[in-house]
Nucleic acid binder design. Sequence first.
DNA 1: CTGAGTTACTTTAGGCCTAATCTATTCAGG
DNA 2: CCTGAATAGATTAGGCCTAAAGTAACTCAG
Lengths: 174, 174
Amino acid sequence: MQQPVPRQAHLRDTRRDPHLDRETASRTDDHHALRLWLRLLTCTQLIEREVRARLRQRFDTTLPRFDLMSQLWRYPEGLKMNELSRHLMVTGGNITGIVDPLEKAGLVERTPEPADRRAYRVRLTRAGRKAFAEMARTHEEWIVELLAGLPRREHTEIYKLLGKMKQVTMEAGS
Amino acid sequence: MQQPVPRQAHLRDTRRDPHLDRETASRTDDHHALRLWLRLLTCTQLIEREVRARLRQRFDTTLPRFDLMSQLWRYPEGLKMNELSRHLMVTGGNITGIVDPLEKAGLVERTPEPADRRAYRVRLTRAGRKAFAEMARTHEEWIVELLAGLPRREHTEIYKLLGKMKQVTMEAGS
DNA sequence: CTGAGTTACTTTAGGCCTAATCTATTCAGG
DNA sequence: CCTGAATAGATTAGGCCTAAAGTAACTCAG
């Protein structure tokens, strides 16, 4: 839980120039779908980068660990490894790599699954619940803050449209 | 440029269950901003994962390499390392790690910058241009295909709204 | 002209992620 | 009951990404 460190000038982050990102170079003859995709990617990266940096600075943790704890928070009875894999949309091997250090830190625990000796259930420990509750509150404030400039009306509009986009993409994908 | 390999049953990708992703567990009392962010993330990951997999299978390359070549394609005179860093929104050290293998593969070249002996210009080679032209055509088809289910009207609507979102996020961020 | 500060790029350590492969367990058909 | 296929999870090799620190070159005030 280290405090934010003031950034020195020679380490200044040059990656936020509003006039120079992936999208800026898109050409007028690019297909609309392509430009939409690039813009979607830019928006996601803007928020994701900020959240990652803040999680690291304020809570000395990472986004994947936060995400995993977030899922466990919503399922107090715990989740199996492959369920976590599906929820977080990452491969199983990766889940092992995220759960291991969290378990070592005492934030989650593996409890045996009586019905299947291959599997077990991952749950937040008491310490994990306490730590997550604090982080989640702050995290939500960050998101609200980052999107505060967006009027409520457009807020729900994007949400609805992205819902449709999610659906058609899932149907089209592989 | 290997061909796609039919996936064996026991390696089936279990990560695309439409009823079980990060978002599904969002609770009704979550703030609207948080739910919007989760949905944005899901949409991006759906497309990104698909594109990464296809780039690997069809062209035996990666998304970061494709993205970097894409920027060079749009700037035939070449870009300096720190310009690439800004365009792709990643750190400088990372650019080194992406350019190195591309240079080794003969797809890009580093040419000295006469005015500044610390810097140089990275450009596509002839082979790089040829390879990229082919990949870009296919890549664009993929994106169009993945978003094909979205009516033109909503297409431009999301594009506009995300533009606004990008703007307010950039103003709010750090 | 000199030296402090800045900039361009690289390197390093560490974490995330994937695909592929491995072990142990479970399951289903004969 | 056996045996082959499928599943749960771990492991490995390799690539991406970051922050931080290192090197070399540039800039400019004194």
